[in-house]
Design a protein around this nucleic acid. Structure first.
Lengths: 161, 161
DNA sequence: ATTGAAATTTCGTATGGCTAACTATATTCC
DNA sequence: GGAATATAGTTAGCCATACGAAATTTCAAT
């Protein structure tokens, strides 16, 4: 079997594991994976506008409105109209929201990080390099579709330069 | 920054790229990503029961019923009652279903594979080893690996604004 | 023959996603 | 200054996906 195929199979295992585990955690936390993700973004940035969060997550503004609606209904975030530009809303996390996040850690984080940090140093370095390489290969097809660009660490280099 | 964090960031880039790609693919093919995945599983195994497919995709039987309903309505698969055990249904792909799979364009996949195969041999080997390692870390505790590309509802995230 | 387990479907409901249309505010430019 | 345009957000309506609970049919074991 070609190595490209082997790599695709491994990728699929990664995607599946992530998805399934994400659902487990979501159930446990009483929140959906998407809701947790929104909460995390808000928590991490302190305050965000719906537009920003939507762009970052790759969904439409309208979808973000309904997601925020639910989080507001649960009391996990609140909306405040911006003073600077009154067209904008600022979404901020509430203490309850923070508590919810602490209760529901990053789906990838728990199981994976612990195992990862037990690996010998050289292997950790290899994994990081490999994952970044693969991410670059996958990102390369998407320059148009991904409105969110992050800066320093993207290597969009394709082989053979 | 810890290497575990770096690896998480890269993983999220991979997940996000895959998900965005899945939506593109779905639009282009006139099928949703999940529908394509069901089709692929059926095609690959020749025949499957709803239970088998549901387990393999990590969704409930009830959900699988509605997915199959849609595919049947489109004429891409058909249901046949099993002779061996008449409680079961066998789901089989139709010629139209096969055509739909073949028609489904695969831009990112192509790009990824093409780019991958241009890498020097030692790097290909490293990537496969690394991906399999990561998959194992994430899989731990889970049962079976899915040989079908998971285009479902995957959480996405990017490290920076 | 009865009882219990298994495979599937049906039903009701929630979530997540989209587009299009609308309101309100900002900006631009004559 | 005011009309035209652009931007941020919400509302409304649609569809796909996901679940649990209950119903149905069939098989298996007592």
């Amino acid at each position: 079997m070609k190595r490209s195929e082997l790599s695709l199979i491994a990728l699929r295992r990664i995607l599946r594991a992530t998805e399934l585990y994400g659902r487990e955690l979501a159930r446990a936390a009483g929140l959906t994976a998407v809701q947790i993700r929104v909460l995390q973004i808000v928590a991490e940035t302190g305050q965000s506008t719906p537009k920003t969060i939507a762009t970052r997550m790759g969904v439409s503004q309208a979808t973000m409105t309904t997601l925020i609606d639910r989080l507001v209904a649960k009391g996990l975030v609140d909306r405040r109209r911006s003073e600077a530009d009154r067209r904008q809303m600022n979404i901020a996390i509430t203490p309850e929201g923070r508590a919810a996040i602490d209760r529901a850690p990053d789906p990838l984080h728990d199981r994976y990080v612990t195992a990862f940090e037990k690996l010998p140093d050289y292997e950790q370095a290899m994994l990081v390099a490999a994952l970044e390489r693969v991410a670059a290969l996958l990102d390369a097809g998407h320059l148009d579709a991904a409105p969110v660009l992050d800066l320093g660490d993207i290597r969009k280099t394709l082989p053979e330069e």
